[in-house]
Design a protein around this nucleic acid. Structure first.
Lengths: 128, 128
DNA sequence: CGTAGTCGATTACATACGTAAACGATGGAG
DNA sequence: CTCCATCGTTTACGTATGTAATCGACTACG
């Protein structure tokens, strides 16, 4: 009865690289995905195919047949992924509070002056 | 020659729970760590011992003998851990820029008004 | 028509992780 | 001295992940 709470399978780091390619442009064939990531990560086409299969199994990617091969497209939005992963980190490390995360990024040189300027602008928007 | 670049082993999520106990108070025996985390995570003492061993192997925890047993203490500072994990996320998801992370947290309701106030205060300090 | 290339699918295999039982030493109770 | 509780250590085992080789089907070339 489709009762499983649908706890979405996590996307691993390697899988994320594949998703990034699909988020940039889709649908793509396995070949095309490889052209986007294989050089960078020093992967074989087979590796990309495996990752694509796993992503399809995780329902993170959809397939549509195109003659003899498949076209792959993302099934989840990149912004959703960013949101859940960010939240997960904030929860795990900072008890769900974002401010301490910023304090840390700031202290550990993670914030450039540009970042600071951007964040200030965002804050101004949030308050309006 | 000790030439290995000393790429520090990652601390897994389960291991982090053990570290949190040690960061709160240390040194602790395995028993005491268990008293802090076993109920919460529904773990057996054996599980805690395994995690402690792995953390010792990863050089994240130091031991000091105390009669027949060991006392465990963290070898890495919690703030260092927070820093590297935060950085890793920002790199992986946001190309190393903190501002987009901030934007996402803001949009996905991850920021409470309190957070915003705190971050404003932090920004003020950063600029001084 | 056979055969080589290409596809997705299946299988492989090492390492990491979550979770723990089994084992061997040892120190304290009787 | 013997036995039990308790340590840390070793071994276990399922799943996830990284990274691929192999396989069976199909198609296009010769």
């Amino acid at each position: 009865m489709a009762g499983t709470p649908d706890q979405p399978d996590r996307i691993s780091e390697a899988e994320q690289a594949v998703m990034e390619a699909l988020w940039q442009r889709s649908p793509l064939t396995a070949q095309e995905v490889c052209e986007h990531v294989c050089a960078e990560r020093d992967w074989s086409l087979n590796t990309v195919k495996t990752l694509l299969s796993r992503l399809v199994a995780k329902q993170a990617v959809a397939t549509q047949p195109d003659g003899k091969r498949f076209l792959y497209s993302p099934r989840i939005a990149r912004s959703d992924y960013l949101g859940t992963e960010s939240r997960r980190l904030v929860d795990r490390l900072f008890g769900g509070r974002a401010a301490p995360l910023f304090a840390h990024l700031a202290q550990s040189e993670g914030l450039t002056p540009d970042d600071i300027a951007e964040i200030e602008a965002l804050l101004k928007e949030l308050k309006s």
